[in-house]
Amino acid sequence: MARHVSTDRRRGFRHALIFLIPGLALLITFMIVPFVSAFIVSFTNTRLIARVPARFIGFDNYVRMFQDDVFGKSLLNIFYFVAVVVPIQTMFALALAVLVNQRIKGTTFFRTAYFLPTVTVMVVVSVIWSFLYHPEGLINGFMQTITFGRWTPIDFLNNRSWAFPSIMLLSIWQGVGFQMIIFLAGLQSIPETLYEAATIDGANRWKQFRYITLPQLKSTTAFVIISTTILAFRLFDQVYIMTRGGPERTTYTVMLHIYEQGFRRQNVGYASALTVAFFLIVLGISIVQRLILKEEREVA
């Protein structure tokens, strides 16, 4: 006898369970449990390799966090990084998408060229750019050529004011292609008729961009801004490889601090408190995202 598409909820659950079990079990074990344990462990003095059993120490780790100047410095640094990288990368990505979206020959080639860095591993990108930033490297050489030798070579990665901007530049270089493609998808979903109507009304290209493209891309832009922000907060690979947070902690980030405390010094309890703080910042931003996106949908 044929089985029926069951509306019986209990039977539905039994069938669904077979499909759900592997995925749910893994998500619970490797995401939910560690996530919840971060909160619990943050109230203890747990060490990575336990010699004595851990005990609850209340809010000590959080109190320590507020007195930790290095953590304060790392927070300031990461906000600096986000404040520079996010607007530049977003605008750059939009500009690239508009350029590549033109109806001219060869755009596929250029689109491919712009996203090549995104398939290059960040560790490799950091190594290549370390070479480029060498005191006698290509970037100093280039600056000397275009200033007719007036440029004094800079040891970019060991210079307090240049190290972080140098890392920002390569981060944008590596990441911008990804956002370009998201913008490109957004651009291609704008109905052609809007532009046709505007052309008939005599609107020039700038006006079309300002009054059609930008408003139509609002939710895409919000998505790009927020996802780039969260990505930027996670900054680790580049600074670990290129500067280890130096010189004088000018490129020291929150993730570097979590790694340093949780792994190098094995202070898992304190690192968990830092993790919780890190998560709350990221969550705060995600909530802002939801609010903005919701507003957009209501307006539209």
Binding site: L27, M31, P34, F35, S37, I258, T275, F279, S286
Partner: peptide
């Protein structure tokens, strides 16, 4: 909701657990 949790927010407890 789980999509919001970045890997970095569970790296240390996951390290503790797997260790």
């Amino acid at each position: 909701a789980l999509m919001i949790i970045p890997f970095e927010a569970i790296a240390i407890p996951l390290l503790l657990m797997t260790a």
